[in-house]
């Protein structure tokens, strides 16, 4: 009787054990085919995270140092009208260059890759047509600039004089940062002019819509916040004449 009991319990435990082992084997095998789970990969991922953290910390330090510098400047120029005027000028220039966070009324427009196009046999002939290219962003930004936009950003990346928008495979590189669909373009300026420049018949948005790219907007927004350019503009070769 006692032996029977032992046998049954051990049998049940072995039953559970083998089920677990079989499930585990299956899971591991499947995972290895879809995601490479080697140690080297994990180490690299850790490294990337560490560097990113370092970058964030340094970036925060930079922001606090800038604030400090600003307050020191204010302190130094308090009792001096000429340097106060200079200070104002520096501020103004920084705003124009895109080195400060700005806010104002303007428009927002979202461009997206058309993911449902695969249902349409006509569109699948050339999938390149239904995705957003760097050229599309450049054309839209150009139209906005032409309409007098004072500040433009794409997915949080400020458009400054040194900005380049290039195609790198399936993503777009802007200001050295890779961004992907959806592309949120924000612009501050005269709302009517900006809106009109985009929806004008024969304008670039019409072309994009005809190509079946998903276009949301343009929407007029009263309070748009545009982030500052978070890089550094260095000049090495130009000199004032």
């Amino acid at each position: 009787m006692k032996k029977k009991q032992i046998a049954i319990t051990l049998g049940i435990v072995c039953f559970i054990l083998t089920i677990a082992i079989a499930i585990q084997l299956k899971t591991i095998r499947n995972t290895n085919t879809t995601i490479s789970q080697s140690l080297a990969d994990n180490a690299l991922r850790d490294e990337v995270l560490k560097w990113k953290e370092k970058y964030d910390v340094t970036y925060k330090e930079l922001a606090s140092s800038e604030k400090e510098l600003d307050s020191i400047r204010k302190e130094a120029t308090r009792n001096d009208t000429t340097s106060q005027a200079k200070q104002e000028e520096i501020k103004q220039n920084n705003m124009l260059l895109g080195m400060t966070n700005v806010q104002g009324s303007g428009i927002e427009i979202v461009l997206k890759d058309n993911l449902t196009a695969s249902n349409d046999p006509l569109l699948t002939l050339n999938p390149s047509n239904v995705i957003v290219h760097n050229i599309d962003l450049i054309e839209v930004i150009n139209a906005l600039k032409n309409a007098g936009a004072e500040a433009i950003s794409v997915n949080g990346q400020r458009v400054v004089p040194t900005t380049s928008i290039t195609c790198v495979g399936n993503v777009i590189k802007i200001n050295g940062q890779k961004i992907g669909s959806p592309f949120v373009i924000r612009a501050i300026g005269n709302q009517e002019l900006l809106y009109g420049s985009l929806v004008i018949p024969g304008g670039y948005l019409n072309i994009l819509k005809d190509a079946h790219v998903v276009v949301e907007g343009p929407n007029k927004v009263d309070h748009i916040n545009i982030e500052k350019y978070d890089g550094v503009i260095n000049f090495k070769y130009i000199k004032s004449r």
Binding site: L10, I12, V13, F15
Partner: peptide, 11 residues
Amino acid sequence: IGCILGAVIGI
């Protein structure tokens, strides 16, 4: 017996 049953169900 437990192992065999478990393997069959686990698969």
